[in-house]
Design a protein around this nucleic acid. Structure first.
Lengths: 145, 145
DNA sequence: CCGCAATGCTTCCCAAAAGAAAGTACGCAC
DNA sequence: GTGCGTACTTTCTTTTGGGAAGCATTGCGG
């Protein structure tokens, strides 16, 4: 699979490179690429879902983070919150139009990761995750003797 | 712009929904969608770059986070680190083959965000509700009396 | 009649992560 | 020998995230 390096790239190439700090793009990118943002958005792809269902799907999320992530994404207009005044309470979350557009460009990423994750984490040699290990062992690699 | 809702979706639909916690996909997704992961990866799209150049491009990143993010991404095999034994030290970072594939699916996302960010942050409550602006600003309130 | 379960959040407390800034190593110019 | 420039690391402080309990409401089991 050849990655065409001659891609037509929008405004990213034009500037010095990436979005400047504090600009809207950075804000939105932060919201979307937050730890749970992608999971929640993709989870909503197959239709409206309730709080407890999202909680089950985004396995490992805390209720606090679920509430916060949903609020942020709703604030950005990616999803709708539909609270029905019944007992026990029932709240349905669903992707907005804009949210569906976003998830559409998000899905290729998620699919690619799903397909390649195994070979990525199993790559031997310099370890799968640099969090621990070689960093502390080699204080400075810069100037090799 | 039409988002084809009738998309044929990969393996995501098959399971209960999203990747289970602790599986390789989640690990990789966390690395990529970490706060600076996307910025660094996209910054490297137009060729190898030095430490200080990346620091400038990913505006706002701290040196600690730059080092950590680079280590993680290198551990995942998305980029190569080429340290030359010269004084003053010179280290070039470049996308690996795998990294180029990843950025290729990342770019549509980044482009979409770049195009829509303005309307997203400037639309407070299109849905008509009071939840305006940054949702992170909702202190307390509960079920409004 | 009373307490409890079910649901969707919020609040408190503490651990983990991110940020700021200073330190480290090295050779060269001064 | 002091200071500079580069690429990091280390230390300390601030922000963020997770766990669990609380709250509000009401039909239902006992």
């Amino acid at each position: 699979m050849t990655v065409s390096t001659g891609n037509s790239l929008s405004p990213l190439q034009g500037a010095d490179g990436i979005f400047p700090a504090g600009c809207p793009s950075r804000t939105v990118l932060d919201h979307v690429s937050s730890k749970w943002g992608v999971l929640i958005l993709v989870a909503l792809w197959n239709g409206p879902q309730r709080w407890s269902e999202l909680r089950r799907r985004a396995e490992g999320i805390s209720e606090k983070m679920l509430a916060q992530t949903l609020k942020t994404l709703e604030g950005d207009g990616f999803l709708h919150r539909d609270a029905q005044p019944v007992i026990p309470p029932r709240v349905d979350y669903s992707l907005s139009n804009r949210g569906r557009e976003l998830v559409a460009v998000l899905l290729p990423l998620v699919s690619w990761i799903a397909e390649h994750a195994d070979e990525i984490v199993s790559v031997p040699g310099t370890a799968g995750s640099g969090e621990s290990g070689d960093a502390a062992e080699a204080p400075h690699g810069h100037i090799a003797p």
